[in-house]
């Protein structure tokens, strides 16, 4: 195992398709996740990007961070644009207008652009079965516009539109289970990932690319600016999100669930929440309520895994 941890990183390409010099905040988990994902994706790709932090910090005219073809049009329509590109290439290849270069179509968007305003377009594209990979970089709020809540904001988190106050505990609803919604579309591949587990992330991105039909990956991306934590803690916080069970790492291949990085004994959620200002106001009773729900959700996930006949593997990526 020790040899493996030395050897595996050497297999990863040094080529950066997502060039350095972008304008993200220091310690931005999204920037790290994009960089890792595009190491796995390679260059034979067309990228469709939704409005949001990634789009803004990579594309200020006259510069670009993209060494691959990239298009941005609007906020909520990324899956639809991707479906147009995919269909166009399919038709043009069939008609002999262009050659079949096996180019992949990858749509990328934030949690707001995916799980709120872009859900209809994404649902439509998944239902129609376009061959593309959709990656949601989930930093759990509308960060680009100043940390407003989205339906992916976790219960209890304080944001600028779900501020904690005398009459408010912060975000009032539980995080929407978007991977389950994707699974309900009967697509071949759904996964969650997190850049603190880079090999797991890259392996999933590769699987998503190879899947025939739509694939959906939701990558938890720590946002120091929005979560209220020092930039140097992004990777640690990402690890704790997995180890506490707050954001489990799993995949669903043709409906079969498997936990890809399992932790037989979950850490208490306070190890995760105590590092972030967005949870600072939560009283012990509230934290306990969240703790119970996290454990219950994790058990439900394990049950799904067992029903699928896949046993979870204990995580080795430390």
């Amino acid at each position: 195992m020790e040899n493996c941890t030395i050897y595996v990183p050497r297999l990863i390409t040094k080529k950066e398709n997502f060039a350095p010099g972008h304008r993200a905040c220091i310690g931005c988990g999204e920037a790290l996740a994009v960089r890792l994902a595009f190491k796995a994706i390679g260059q034979n790709v067309i990228v469709v990007n939704a409005t949001g932090c990634v789009e803004i910090f990579t594309s200020q005219l006259p510069y670009t961070s993209w060494r691959v073809p990239w298009i941005h049009t609007l906020f909520e329509n990324t899956a639809a644009v991707a479906s147009g590109i995919e269909s166009a290439r399919k038709a043009m290849i069939r008609k002999g207008i262009i050659q079949d270069t096996k180019t992949k179509i990858v749509a990328i968007a934030g949690d707001g652009g995916t799980i709120d305003i872009g859900l209809q377009a994404l649902s439509g594209a998944m239902e129609r079965g376009h061959d593309f990979l959709y990656i949601c970089f989930d930093n759990e709020a509308y960060m680009n516009t100043g940390i407003q809540r989205s339906s992916a904001t976790p219960f209890g988190a304080s944001t600028t539109t779900s501020p904690a106050g005398k009459e408010s505990i912060g975000q009032f609803a539980w995080k929407k289970d978007m991977p389950a919604i994707a699974v309900a579309h009967n697509i071949p591949y759904v996964a969650t990932a997190n850049p603190s587990y880079p090999f797991d992330l890259m392996a999933k991105v590769k699987k998503g690319l190879e899947a025939k039909g739509p694939a959906y990956i939701q990558i938890l991306s720590a946002c120091p600016t929005g979560w209220g934590c020092p930039g140097e803690l992004s990777v640690k916080i990402g690890r704790l999100a997995a180890k506490t069970g707050v954001f489990p790492l799993y995949e669903v291949e043709n409906g079969k669930y498997s936990i890809t990085v399992d932790f037989p004994k979950l850490l208490p959620i306070t190890e995760y929440t105590s590092l972030q200002k967005r949870f600072r106001h939560l009283q012990p009773e509230m934290l306990e309520q969240i703790q119970q729900k996290v454990v219950r959700k994790y058990e439900e996930l394990k049950e799904k895994t067992e029903m699928s006949g896949c046993c979870g593997q204990t995580g080795t990526e430390e």
């Binding site: 590109i85 269909s87 008609k95 649902s123």
Partner: peptide
Amino acid sequence: LDAEYIPVESEHSAMSACMGSAAAGART
């Protein structure tokens, strides 16, 4: 007609898919 017909789920997506298609070089 040898074409891809995309039965989109809204007009917003119709025009969005058309933008993607035209950007890919197809007659749309």
